[in-house]
Structures are given as structure tokens and as C-alpha cells.
Simulated scan of single mutants.
Amino acid sequence: MMRFSTLMKHPADWMTGKNANNEVVITSRIRLARNVRDLPFPGWAKKAERIDSMELIRGKVEALKVMKNGFSHELSELEPLQKQVLVERHLISREQAARGQGSAAVVDRGQRLSLMINEEDHLRMQSIRAGLHLREAHRLLGKVDDALEDELAFAFDADLGYLTACPTNLGTGMRASAMLHLPALVLTEQIGQVLQAVNKIGLAVRGLFGEGTESLGHLFQISNQSTLGESEEAIISRLERVIAQIETHETNARLKMLEDEPNQLSDRIGRAYGTLGYATIFESKEAFSHISLLRMGAAMGYFPEGTMQVCDSMMMDIQPAHLQLHAGAELEPEERDLIRAEILRTRLQSLEAPAINVLTNKNASDEDTTGDLNFENE
């Protein structure tokens, strides 16, 4: 199986954004919760029972064709910093990182598939794809789910569906989500209306690392909340419609900014570029905000093709665990701020300055771009 160091050398398929329209919708994710019949749930199991169930399930997962030459480790075999890196790459949850003996993570070579063993449930399986490709992620994970169901007897009830440790996951056991980059809606102060409308129709809005985390770099995670009484197809279709509408609102907000305040927009992007290129100290939150503006500028033509992928890479590499892995040592926050700034200055040296003069003279569409923020009829 793949070593941790090898996993770190290769960016995930979804991180490169290849062949994906990911200007606004960065990633799509499908997650399935499953438990093995007649085995105690991880939270109730004794240590020996957790180890036994982990070994049983891990062997079946590693044997999958798609996991050939993948990454597989028991959580107790990993250093705390390594576990945090996996969290930052969205390969395991924060809850999984807190687990020790009797829990494991198995990831395919392309980091498209990640299976957490003995997190809250026996299996938390997820698939991540770049852009708005929920169905592609669902198909990929569905094959894994079917293959494992042939090998493991999943706990299932005819009325309640798949049985899970938390009642909120009963039924399909599925969470469908998308990570959206919404800087224009934040800057034009429309984000509150959008998030309120999304919550009103029963969808959840979370930060970069899910429940209980804040939004960094104008990134928001939107997902279904209910899994019982609704089919997987219905959940995905509803989420697709809402995500597509939010994407339209964000695109229109960018066009409106370009039309109404081209100089102010250019100034924001230019200042972000200058600050990233010359600052010597950077906290995470500020760095994310500046990179976010560069990413928006790249999507709007201020920078050459490929700049968005550079921005996505920077957002990953400046996170605390990735920084410390890069430095080869645990660092105090102040030390991380210095190294974060050094990394960003280095990256900006190879990035062309924004083409501000071209875009300040560019005319945007005259149509009304505000739109209706009511998703109830979607």
C-alpha cells in the first residue's frame, strides 16, 4: 500500500480542477454512512470489538480493485500532524482524527475515494469530484457501496433504511454536499439573503471543514440535512438545482461588480496580489481572504489560465498541518505565520501581475444581475 509521504507528493484529482468548471463550485462530495449487522456501533463497542471490526472491514475495503496501491493506515499508526493533514485534505473528518486504536482510513491513489473505518459508524465512505458533479461522485461511490454490500451484511431496516449511530443519518445514510467559492456575494452583501434562503428549504450551510467551522476564503459548504423519507436521486436533484442557482447568483454578482465598480474591483484584486507578494506575516484567515480575491480575479480574466489551480494549491499548502509538514517540525502560531508568508511570496513570484488596465475599460452586461434569491420553488 501507499506510504503517507507518497500520498502527500501527489495532489488529489479534485484539487487540480482538470477538465472541470470549478470557478464557483469547487468540489462535489457524496458521503455514505454504513454499519455492519450484528456488530456493536463504534461508540458502544469495547476496544477489542473495535479492533476486530476494523480488521474485518479494512480487509474487505483494501481488497477492492479501486483501492489497489492505495493508502491504508490505522489511525493509531499516524502522528497527530499526519492526521491533521488528512483532515485538511478532506480525506478524514475531525472526529476521525481524534480516534486511535480500532479506527482506520483507506484512500485510493487519486484521493477521489476515502473510507473511514470506525468513525461514528463502522463505515463513512466518501467520493469527491471537482466542479458540480454530484452524480459522478454518486456513481463512483455507488460501485464501492455495492461491492462492499456483497461482502458485508449492512444493518438495514425495511422501514427506516440503513441504520446509523446518529438518527439524522437514518434512511439513505447519504450526505451530498458542494464546496462553493462565493466572494462576490460576500462583497456585495448578498450572502446573508442567499444563506437564509438555503436554510429555509432545509439545506445546511457550513464552513470549510463542515459542522461547527467558519467560512474561510469565502468558501461555503452546502449539503442536505435530511436522509430519511427521501431517495438518493431526490436529494441529489434538489441540491443540484439549488447549487446551480447559487452559482448563477455568484456569477451575476461578479458581472455587476465589474459593470458598476470596475476600478474598485481592480483595486481589490491588485491590493490582494501586492499584499500576498510582499507581506512577511500572514495569519490563515487574512491569507485565505487575499487568495480568494485572486481566485475570483483568475475566473474573471485578470490572470492567465491555470491561476485558479495555483490559488487552490496555495489554500491547501498554507493550512497549519501542511505548513508544519513542509517545515518538518511542529511550529508555534507565530512561526507558522512567518512561513505562510514566505510560501506565498515565493508562489507569487511566478504569478503574473493582474491585467488591470484591460479590465477597467471592459463593458459588462447591462442586464439586471441581482435575481431572485428565493429557492423554495426549485
Rank of each mutant, 00 (worst) to 15 (best):
M2D: 03
R3Y: 08
M8G: 05
T16G: 09
G17M: 04
K18S: 13
N19F: 06
V24L: 04
V24W: 01
T27G: 05
A33L: 05
V36W: 03
L39Q: 05
P40C: 06
P42R: 07
K46V: 06
S53T: 13
V61Y: 06
V66P: 01
S72I: 12
S76P: 07
L86K: 06
H90N: 12
H90F: 14
L91A: 07
Q101L: 09
A105R: 02
V106H: 13
V107H: 08
D108N: 15
D108A: 07
D108T: 10
D108P: 02
E119K: 01
H122W: 10
H122V: 07
H122P: 12
R124C: 04
I128E: 09
R129E: 11
G131W: 01
L132P: 01
H133T: 00
R135L: 05
E136R: 03
A137Y: 01
L141Q: 00
E151D: 13
C166T: 12
P167E: 03
T168N: 05
L170S: 11
R175A: 04
S177L: 09
H181Q: 11
H181G: 12
L187G: 08
T188F: 00
Q193C: 04
V194T: 10
L195H: 04
Q196H: 09
V198H: 04
N199F: 02
G207I: 12
G207M: 10
E211C: 03
E214G: 11
G217R: 01
H218S: 15
L219I: 15
S223E: 12
E232V: 09
E233D: 15
I243G: 05
A253G: 08
L255R: 10
K256A: 14
D260W: 08
N263E: 15
Q264F: 12
Q264N: 15
G270I: 00
G274C: 04
I281K: 11
E286A: 10
S292E: 03
R295F: 06
G297A: 05
A299W: 01
G301F: 11
F303L: 04
E305V: 14
Q309S: 14
S313F: 08
M316W: 04
D317N: 14
Q324R: 04
H326Y: 11
H326P: 02
L338W: 04
A341M: 01
E342A: 10
E342L: 07
L344N: 00
L344W: 00
A353M: 08
I356Y: 09
K362P: 01
S365G: 14
N377H: 07
